[in-house]
Design a protein around this nucleic acid. Structure first.
Length: 428
RNA sequence: GGUUGGGUGGCCGAGUGGUUUAAGGCACCGGUCUUGAAAACCGGCGUACCGCAAGGUACCGGGGGUUCGAAUCCCUCCCCAACCGCCA
């Protein structure tokens, strides 16, 4: 959420920001409601002050008659206050609805426009080269080498679930290991988080746990939800905390399973592993000082590049356009990996995403920092970024490393955990 | 799942209706002393909101109630810990 005072003082800026992000919000209405609410709140506080003064004087009243008179006076003041309080709550409720709909402010360099306006910053990894043989997609490759059992997944849990088998199971662990090792070298604290979290934590991070629009699985009879990303648990880990400024930035990498209902996603390009209800993800998360978050965001993006560079997979980096940013993101970069089996002749597909949420999440989660010797506390900035989402990384690996004989090479950096260099065919 | 005990500022912790204006301690900041530091002593020191300021209001797990007045009494929900049971 945005700072209310900032909105009041910069209504024009906020309205324009909502406009370029394609979010319909009546900022003027919010300002109107909030201004009225504050005026009434001041009156309430004055009544409370008077009532408190009356209460205090009762202890020193000299006789019963005076005491009764004062009691009556106090009662009337509080009743008046309660009536105003109802108005304040009514105004506040409407203002909150608008407030919650307001997205974060936007980085000045983010391209303005819809999804198509996202800017390609650069390409990396090996160049995309045409194959000299008919390309198979990951579903066919997995079938051929008995790597993924979609039918079994459907039988056990329904469409969108799967069993990873044989080298695919090994690859999941190898990818985790590879990524974790890299991030630990970079000073991240590795964390394995809960896969479930309370509703309040989801809301604080910006997810909607229940209701018709939700993408979240929830547990019946409990205030627990299956997490859609470790961003939820890592953000929640510090909710309500005050961090000493010198401990910032804090860099965490969390491993969790991720569960998504993908409601409304039917029909979108989602064959095989691309859009599934469960996958494993290594997630980067950082808490920083405000002046550190831009650099940290670029650093997250470069780490994502480094990870795919190491895997030897062609990728491109996008600076996401304003109309395609989620509510909490101030700026977002996506990495798209080349997936040769996707579409007619190969397409880029999103494999990672990193967002700088500035103080939008921390305001709601109440995560602050304190500078030694200075009074008061300030909000930290939060950032998240995918290190590796296993299911999508698997698509990219299987499809890019397929060979003419149908075998699949294993990326060099993963071989030490695989005990082999190739799936199917003859070893090198 | 059962039983018991808990939830008070950054941390520990006192506090069963009105000098609590939340004691005291730790930590932290400033000062005295010192070549410097430590110790000792003196002073300061919760958070948010409104206000130019003086000052005010709210906050003792959440919500509701009783009362002129609630951290304190009542109702309700949540959470945590310990032990028991079950269990990888």
């Amino acid at each position: 959420m945005l700072d209310k005072r900032f909105i009041l003082e910069n209504a024009g800026v906020v309205q324009r920001n909502c406009d370029i992000r394609g979010v319909k919000v009546d900022v003027a209405r919010f300002v109107d409601l909030e201004t009225q609410r504050r005026k009434l709140q001041t009156e309430i506080e004055e009544l409370a002050r008077q009532a408190n003064a009356v209460s205090k004087s009762i202890g020193q009243a000299k006789d019963a008659a005076e005491r009764e008179a004062r009691k009556d006076e106090g009662r009337q003041l509080r009743e008046k206050k309660d009536r105003l309080q109802e108005d304040v709550e009514r105004l506040g409720a409407e203002a909150t609805l608008i407030h919650n709909a307001m997205p974060n402010l936007t980085h000045p360099e983010s391209p303005i426009g819809g999804e198509d306006a996202s800017a390609e910053l650069r390409r990396g990894g090996p160049a995309v080269k045409p194959f000299s043989f008919p390309v198979q997609d990951h579903v066919a490759l997995a079938e051929q080498h008995n790597l993924i059992d979609f039918e079994g997944g459907a039988r056990v849990a329904g469409h969108g679930f799967y069993f990873l088998k044989n080298e695919a199971a090994q690859l999941e662990l190898a990818l985790q290991h590879y990524t974790l090792d890299l991030l630990i070298r970079e000073g991240f604290t590795p964390v394995i988080t809960p896969d479930l979290a309370r509703g309040d934590v989801l809301k604080g991070v910006g997810f909607i746990p229940r209701g018709p629009e939700t993408q979240i699985y929830s547990v019946e009879n409990h205030d627990l939800n299956l997490v859609a990303t470790a961003e939820i648990t890592l953000g929640g880990l510090y909710a309500g905390q005050v961090i000493e400024a010198e401990k910032l930035p804090i860099k965490l990498c969390g491993i969790s399973h991720c569960f998504r209902t993908e409601a409304g996603a039917a029909g979108r390009a989602s064959r095989g592993l691309y859009r599934v209800h469960q996958f494993t993800k290594v997630e980067m998360f950082a808490f920083t000082l405000p002046e550190q978050s831009d650099d940290m965001h670029n650093y997250f993006r470069e780490l994502e590049c480094e990870i795919f560079e190491g895997l030897g997979i062609p990728y491109r980096v996008l600076d996401i356009a304003t109309g395609d940013l989620g509510g909490p993101a101030y700026r977002k970069f996506d990495l798209e990996a080349w997936m040769p089996g996707r579409g007619n002749a190969g397409e880029y597909g999103e494999v990672t995403s990193t967002s700088n949420c500035t103080d939008y999440q921390s305001r709601r989660l109440d995560i602050r920092y304190k500078v030694k010797g200075e009074k008061g506390t300030l909000l930290v900035h939060t950032l998240n970024g995918t290190a590796v989402a296993i299911s999508r990384a698997l698509i990219a690996i299987l499809e890019n490393y397929q060979q003419a004989d149908g075998s699949i090479l294993i990326p060099e950096v993963l071989r030490k955990w695989m005990g082999k260099d190739r799936i199917g065919g003859n070893s090198l």
